[in-house]
């Protein structure tokens, strides 16, 4: 295997480490410094405000819903894509990846156009039946689902593909029906893939900003999310509070990454 010369190796390390440090590392340090610039003062100021606390709760609630829905959809979709053949499968598989490439603003606009209570395609009908989507939780949940849609699917599909359906066939030959096979054999086998997908979805959902901003209407104390609260605090010159809330959000995100990192078996490396 190619081994770089020692000076080249060191030069490469320096370049890479400096780049990542200047781009991500140092800004993170700045975040911590600014969040704790007043000891715990910023945190107290931020979280004594009931609206901020409400924003955090809204964020967590919406994220949990999105995680739940996407996990069910993700596992189901993965099973369909890997274990069956049907017309249009390839197109569907590609479309599921679409949310990775679409702008959050476009996602928000798209949902707005369909579910908006006045001029939307379905909005007025839904509101007539008492279901408000835009400027309300359902819309926020949908927006969050949209942005994190592929995450569980993409974690589960490779694992399902790799383990093959031998075990499932064996279970069938031993008398298990479809549900028993799913519960006792398939799901336990993809357990960890589901866990990774869930954690990634959680991280992405907690952090969603653009799409939710359009769909929620940013109604303080009602539909404002934590990330929108950050923007508001900053624009109100309460920078300390903005940093405090940001710190909490980043901490949660980093926790998610670290958890996945620790759980996942080590990647083979040279």
């Amino acid at each position: 295997m190619v081994e770089l010369s020692t000076p080249a190796k060191w030069a490469l390390r320096v370049v890479v480490i400096s780049y990542v440090f200047l781009l991500v590392g140092w800004p993170m340090i700045t975040l911590i410094q600014n969040a704790f610039s007043d000891g715990l003062g910023n945190f107290q100021a931020a979280f004594s405000d009931p609206d901020v606390v409400h924003a955090m709760i809204v964020t967590i609630e919406v994220s949990l819903w999105a995680v739940g829905i996407n996990t069910v959809f993700g596992v189901g979709m993965a099973l369909l894509l890997v274990r069956y053949e049907f017309p249009g499968k390839r197109a569907l598989s590609a479309l599921i990846d679409l949310p990775m490439a679409v702008s959050p603003v476009v996602i928000g606009l798209a949902l707005l156009l369909v579910y908006n209570g006045r001029t939307g395609w379905f909005g007025p009908t839904l509101e007539a039946h008492g279901i408000q989507v835009i400027f309300s939780s359902p819309g926020m949940i949908m927006a969050t689902c949209f942005v994190s849609l592929p995450l569980v699917v993409r974690e589960v599909v490779p694992v399902l593909t790799e383990i093959g359906d031998d075990q499932e066939q064996a279970a069938t030959s031993l008398g298990a029906n479809a549900f028993q096979t799913l519960r006792r054999i398939t799901l336990p086998a993809i357990k960890w893939a589901i866990v990774y997908g869930v954690v990634l979805t959680m991280a992405r959902s907690l952090g969603e900003f653009g799409a939710v901003k359009i769909v929620s209407g940013n109604l303080i104390g009602q539909t404002q999310t934590a990330s929108q609260a950050v923007e508001q605090e900053y624009n109100n010159f309460s920078q300390g509070e903005a940093y405090a809330i940001s710190f909490v959000l980043v901490l949660l995100a980093v926790l998610c990454i670290v958890v996945v990192s620790l759980l996942r078996p080590k990647e083979p490396s040279a």
Binding site: V20, F21, V24, G25, P27, M28, T30, L31, P104, L200, A203, R204, L206, G207, E208, F209, G210, A226, S227, Q228, V230, E231, Y234, A242, Y243, S246, L249, V250, A253, V254, C256, I257, V258, S261
Partner: peptide, 18 residues
């Protein structure tokens, strides 16, 4: 390794702030 993943998981508004 962890630093690389941070931009992916961080709320974008916070990225700007940071």
């Amino acid at each position: 390794d962890v630093l690389i993943d941070i931009p992916f998981a961080m709320p974008t508004i916070v990225a700007g702030l940071v």
